[in-house]
Amino acid sequence: MGVLANFVVNVLPYITFIVFVVGVIYRIAVWWSRPSPIPIAVFPGQRSVGSAIVRVLSDVIFFRSLLQFKGNQILWLGAWLFHISFGLILLRHLRYFLGAEAVPGWVAAVQGIGIAAALVISIPLLYLLLRRIVHADIKWISTPADYFVLLLILSVVLSGLYAKYFARPFVVDVKYVIRSLMALKPVDLSTVTLNTAFLVHFFLVQVLAMYIPFSKVMHFGGIFFSPTRTHHFGGEAHTKQLEEA
């Protein structure tokens, strides 16, 4: 384990953390601060703040808008499967972050489904990649960045699976590394056994995290600000106004 390993474990994580957090906060702050005085809700509408919240959440959780057209149903399945798997994998990885001794019960409870998600996620990822190559119209609208982010996530997934099933590091040491980083304590690499598979995975994850604030992946934050969804058609139907007038 040389200088490179030391950089990936002891230096880069802090850079990653700062770039990710500052970057994401900055991007969201920009959206937050932009004025939006014109209500541009799109029917079927939100008539109140409550129903606007429901509508946004139904898009966030169920990707409701993708179900509005028959031809988008496979995309819905692929996209939803990918995102839910991604979320479950993130949850599973909390075992390396939480609990000094044993992990909290709920984190232990999601390990099984988290591993299942890791095994499944390559399928929607490959689908999302293939549709950009196979469909002439989707190919036309795709930019190099669209392929890049899919390949990056795929490499994170595959390196993770490789580390889990073919070149397993000592997980107690992995947790020790993460906990040390969280405590801002440098890790003496000679005292832990980390293999290359882990280091590659750990490195790719950090590249992904740093890439996020500069990329379209920020849609995860932007979706909460979309005026066509967050705005609402004020008050009741206009017929009420007739009675007043």
């Binding site: 991007r27 119209d137 920020m218």
Partner: peptide, 23 residues
Amino acid sequence: RKERKSLQLYLDICVRCGACVKQ
């Protein structure tokens, strides 16, 4: 883009999924 949240956001968050293509 500084005056309109909608514009700034819609310039930023498209993932080019193509759901709109045939609409």
